[in-house]
């Protein structure tokens, strides 16, 4: 559905996209993750026809975004990370205005707009002036606006930013419904646990390049293999450490109150061998497992950032 090939974009001397490659299949719910300035918004803006790439190609449903941007725009619903308000316009009028852009007018426009507002749980606010809606409602209205021409792809740039937990939950529910309706969704966010719950695929971008891409489980398990082993022994801790040090795959050992944390780079068979060597010396091993990570720890590890993430 979306194919990005060696996409480049510079802002002066700052490299925003550095030969970015990405492909997203139809019906995917793709989470775009990366630190600030990594190139998420730039990629989304290029796909939406708001920015010209300096190099490389981007295709939406086989259509070149640079050469046929008007065709691409009819397939895309874009929601930026801000919400622009027209003064003196009611929510339903705001929707009807965007419907008229796509040639939908009159009663059919009113019916469609009410359906979409119902989808985002805003039907009862139709006659309210947009200016008087809460931020969460505005965000949902903006989402409904991006659906007015029934696009196949939704590009959402941090749709839940600045929302309270309840509004975030409502937004998540609406997005889940849209995914069930078969829409291909690309979403960028800093709220990683939410992305992990919603997305079928995650792409981690850093310094304008795709660092890692796959399902949440794939990414976490891939990085888990480099996570340390946590071994809990009931007695004879010093002897256990001595045995562990004899293993050439052990890189480092640190002692915690109840566990021995072992930096170990080996496959599952080699892990089993290490456990066997402890058991052979009759060390009372109570627990032996890899420390597991979540998307957040993976993100920190991959991007090498130390910034505190919200969520």
């Amino acid at each position: 559905m979306i194919k990005i090939d060696s996409l480049c974009k510079n802002y002066g001397s700052f490299v925003a996209l550095n030969h970015l490659n990405l492909s997203i299949a139809k019906g995917e719910f793709f989470g775009f993750v990366g630190p600030n300035g990594a190139g998420k918004t730039t990629t989304m803006r290029i796909l939406s026809g708001l920015l010209r790439a300096d190099g490389g190609e981007a295709f939406v449903d086989g259509i070149d975004v640079r050469k046929n941007s008007s065709q691409v725009k009819s397939k895309i619903g874009y929601m930026p990370d801000f919400f622009g308000v027209y003064d003196n316009l009611k929510a339903i009028e705001y929707m009807e205005f965007y419907a008229s852009i796509y040639g939908i007018t009159g009663n059919s426009a009113r019916k469609l707009c009410m359906e979409l507002m119902d989808l985002v749980n805003l039907a009862e606010k139709a006659e309210f002036y947009v200016d008087n809606l809460s931020r969460g409602m505005k965000q949902r209205l903006c989402l409904a606006r991006s659906l007015v021409h029934n696009p196949e792809i939704l590009i959402l740039d941090e749709p839940a930013s600045g929302l309270d937990p309840r509004a975030r939950f409502e937004m998540k529910e609406v997005l889940g419904n849209l995914h069930e309706m078969g829409k291909t969704i690309i979403i960028s966010s800093h709220i990683l646990p939410e992305l992990a719950q919603m997305c079928t695929t995650i792409g981690i971008i850093d310094h304008g390049s795709m660092v890692m891409k796959g399902s949440v489980e794939e990414i976490v398990s891939h990085l888990n293999s480099s996570n340390p082993l946590a071994i809990k022994v009931l007695d004879r801790k010093e002897e256990a450490v001595r045995i562990l040090k004899e293993n050439p795959l052990v890189r480092n050992i640190s002692l915690e109150e109840k566990e021995i944390i072992v930096g170990f780079e080996g496959k599952e068979e080699e892990e089993a061998g290490l456990l066997a060597s402890l058991v052979a010396q009759e060390i009372p091993v109570a627990a032996f497992n890899r420390q597991s990570g979540n998307l957040e720890t993976v993100f920190m590890k991959v991007t090498g950032q130390k910034e505190v993430l919200e969520g």
Partner: peptide
């Protein structure tokens, strides 16, 4: 004014030329 209200970008992502 559209730029200041941040509505121009949204317009430019529609099929309006």
């Amino acid at each position: 004014g559209e730029r200041e209200k941040q509505t121009l970008e949204i317009l430019l992502t529609t099929v309006m030329t």
